[in-house]
């Protein structure tokens, strides 16, 4: 067993590796710096740099005659956001994001509740993958699937016709605002697809929050005479709320910034994402596009600040 020399301090290994290794031990700060430099350079310069440069452009304006950017500090671009046609876009997007978030919470809750409290063993895995696979499957394919479903000649029309309920669809489409000539070019269609694409992000945080609720709390409430509705209202819902808020951060933010769903399934009226896309692309008005981008950032900033005060980040 005596294979090691009988000294108490061994010589440093030769070469650069030995010297570097000793240096990392003596000065751990150097190793930390070496580890942090590449990601910080990448994210700090490429990402943050571009982001800040973009946001700064929102304080410039565009010359109406030449179409060139006027590099002088001004708030006039922000004032443009308030003109009715632009403000309508912001309002429409925020209302849609709120509706999508509320509807997602309602649909997600039973799934999360079942997975957290009743699913065991094999069913737990099935529920988990049953949420993860749609969540991760292709964004465009999901939209495409709904294009197939909502199309006039598609499965929904066929299904309603079989049930002799086409009159119901026609009545809905005849409604103002939510209606249209077909579901795939109406707000209703946009709303459904938004829910479909972003709702899975709501399930896991709610499930995580519910899993932390001890089962005997529900029994205690029933024991004290609470009926199921009261138990839900006074026990379950308040305890799940941080999870709902955590999930709503995703559904709300993702809906706010999306520009592809309303472009493919929806009416011709714009959402914020589309406005940004149009302003920077065809209109070439980078300052206004930048100002539009600031809107979801500010809204999300406020939202995150409120969510943090509710303790939602523990449920993420």
């Amino acid at each position: 067993m005596s294979t090691v020399a009988d000294t108490s301090i061994l010589a440093r290994r030769g070469g650069l590796a030995g010297r570097l290794s000793d240096l990392f031990w003596r000065k751990p700060g150097i190793l930390l710096l070496l580890m942090l430099t590449p990601p910080l350079l990448w994210l700090g310069i490429i990402y943050l740099g571009s982001l800040i440069a973009l946001l700064l452009q929102s304080f410039f304006s565009i010359d109406d005659f030449s179409g060139l950017i006027n590099y002088e500090f001004t708030l006039s671009t922000y004032r443009q956001l308030l003109i009715p046609s632009n403000f309508d876009i912001i309002l429409r997007t925020v209302v849609m994001a709120v509706m999508v978030t509320l509807a997602s919470a309602v649909i997600a809750f039973p799934i999360a509740y079942y997975a957290a409290r009743y699913a065991r063993g094999k069913w737990k895995v099935i529920f988990y993958l049953g949420v993860m696979l749609p969540l991760w499957s292709s964004y465009l394919v999901k939209i495409y699937a709904w294009k197939l479903i909502l199309a006039k000649e598609g499965i929904l029309t066929w299904f309603l016709a079989k049930l002799h309920l086409l009159w119901l669809l026609d009545a809905w489409l005849a409604l103002p605002v939510v209606g249209g000539s077909s579901l795939s070019i109406s707000y209703t269609g946009t709303f459904i697809v938004f829910i479909y694409v972003w709702m899975p992000f709501m399930i896991l945080p709610i499930q995580a929050a519910l899993e932390r609720v001890p089962g005997n709390l529900i029994e205690a409430s029933a024991d004290l005479g609470g009926n199921p509705a009261q138990t839900f209202r006074f026990v379950l819902f308040p305890l799940a709320l941080p999870g709902i808020i955590a999930g709503s951060i995703f559904t709300f933010s993702l809906t706010l910034g999306d520009y592809i769903i309303p472009q493919i399934i929806g009416s011709s009226r714009l959402f914020i994402g589309q406005a940004v896309y149009a302003q920077q692309g065809t209109a070439g008005n980078i300052p206004l596009a930048a100002a539009f981008s600031v809107v979801p950032i500010v809204i999300m900033g406020l939202y995150l600040w409120m969510a943090k005060r509710q303790g939602a980040f523990d449920a993420l």
């Binding site: 108490s8 301090i9 290794s21």
Partner: peptide, 28 residues
């Protein structure tokens, strides 16, 4: 063991100076 370095003072292991020597070079 060499997981910490002294803020001040002197450490010897079998008569050899140990401060500044990483754990993997100590026969400890």
């Amino acid at each position: 063991a060499g997981f910490e370095q002294p803020t001040a003072g002197h450490i010897e292991i079998f008569g050899e100076t140990a401060e500044g020597v990483p754990p993997y070079r100590r026969n400890v």
